[in-house]
């Protein structure tokens, strides 16, 4: 039965982790649009044809 003394507090720690993760997810807006995000995965993520003639291969160069 002494194993309970380890396992139960461990359970509490896991509960804490779950709550923190949940709060983070809510604050991050992950529950705001339940439909759109579900469908987003269905869209082709491959960049389609270059949309502008002048578009070069350096879209993300930071500053």
């Amino acid at each position: 039965m002494t194993i309970l003394l380890v396992l139960i507090p461990l359970g509490i720690v896991l509960l804490g982790v779950a709550i923190v993760a949940f709060v983070w997810a809510v604050r991050n807006g992950q529950f705001e649009d339940l439909e759109g995000e579900g469908e987003r995965i269905l869209f082709d993520d491959e960049p389609s044809l270059p949309s502008d003639g002048e578009r070069q291969a350096s879209p993300a160069e930071g500053e």
């Binding site: 705001e32 649009d33 439909e35 502008d52 578009r55 070069q56």
Partner: peptide, 26 residues
Amino acid sequence: CAACVWIIERHLLAREGIRSVRTSLA
């Protein structure tokens, strides 16, 4: 709808100089 979100994000991000786009449907 979600498709509009998709096309807006696609089209804007294809433009040079735009760094991020976040759309809220609601």
